[in-house]
Write a protein that binds this DNA or RNA. Sequence first.
DNA 1: TTCCTGCTTTCTACATGTAACACTCTCCCT
DNA 2: AGGGAGAGTGTTACATGTAGAAAGCAGGAA
Lengths: 217, 217
Amino acid sequence: MQPIASARVVDVVRDQLRSAILAGDLAPGSRLSVPELARQLGVSRSPVREAVLLLVGEGLAVEQSRRGVEVARLELGDVLELYELRISLESLAARHAAERMTNTDLVALRGVLDAQGAAAVGDARSFRELDLRFHEIVSQTCGNTRLARHAALLAREMRLAAPLMVNEPWHLRQSHEEHRTIERALRQRDGPAAENAMREHLGRVCQSVRNRHSTTP
Amino acid sequence: MQPIASARVVDVVRDQLRSAILAGDLAPGSRLSVPELARQLGVSRSPVREAVLLLVGEGLAVEQSRRGVEVARLELGDVLELYELRISLESLAARHAAERMTNTDLVALRGVLDAQGAAAVGDARSFRELDLRFHEIVSQTCGNTRLARHAALLAREMRLAAPLMVNEPWHLRQSHEEHRTIERALRQRDGPAAENAMREHLGRVCQSVRNRHSTTP
DNA sequence: TTCCTGCTTTCTACATGTAACACTCTCCCT
DNA sequence: AGGGAGAGTGTTACATGTAGAAAGCAGGAA
């Protein structure tokens, strides 16, 4: 059996807070009061304080000096910054993943895409979930552990901006097709093709977010 | 006067520990015992514990589950990972910096390069210091705050690998010339040229590190 | 010698105590 | 009515207490 070192309270609290933030239960701008959270979670303040600091390190929360920590509020500019970074990092990851992915990884990736193809019709929530899984698999199999870690951080931080995303069905379907193109390149072990496909995919999504908000400010 | 919010003990401790690590006073692999450090620094364990966790978040230390935290030990593979990321991020930063740098920034950059040109002869330590400043200025003026933050983290983490670096005078001189090329592109506001120059510069440095250690393992 | 066992020491992880500070609300003075 | 003092509340930041676990060491058996 694997090491179950996650019996640590701080890890549990961090995961719970992260889930609550990403699910929207803790809205952007909410103050994260350590004593209050400790009471609600039934633990002492120490692990809560640590967990909150870790979330700050992940970019999910921001601390203003002496006034405590609050859930990060992402503007359009932040999302564009994040996309720019994701384009750079994930296209690099895709290139390496094409050379280093195992067949098991490819099967998993195909599974995610098939599920996404089935869900793509109107269920934006499931679609986004599978989108995350797709990008996560590519990033985590690139062989560069630091690249994987930074990419995961960026992807998570971006989830805070869910309300700014474009959820039109045709747009989701287009994303799905682009995912298929990326997967094809990965399966053929064509690094440059995977890199380009990933860059174009994220670039197009970024552009659509930008258009969406420049026309309806 | 500006807000002197940095009277916080945790910030002071973090800076001291970081300096000690980067200066080599705390060698890679050293255990960071919270009670011991608290005694030495004359503060309680709480801020020390927080500071240590922050350093883990920065990649300067690693925690093995339940066995505490120790200063990160960078192998050749880690350095290559870091260079790959830096190439990706800093070349992107250079492109944007070309468009967004102020004239004041350019003057500062030129100043760093002139100092580097004067120091390049045999003083590898000063040279490296100015190398850091050069890359820092470019990254910090790119206009993308997250990109700047991630680039700064990578540059700092890489300082842990000082013993693996190549310090031959001809190599330093070559780096300096490449810096000049980058600066020229930035001054001419030529984004793509700055991007390419940065990518080639870091790529060459990375390659020289790789060669150095594949021939003398 | 090598291996096992039990003790000792130290640390981590969590809990709790507390001074100083920030915000809010009330009430009084002008 | 409007503005400001001041109490009251809640928080942060740091200090300290402590159970349990891990590492190191000693000593004895094979």
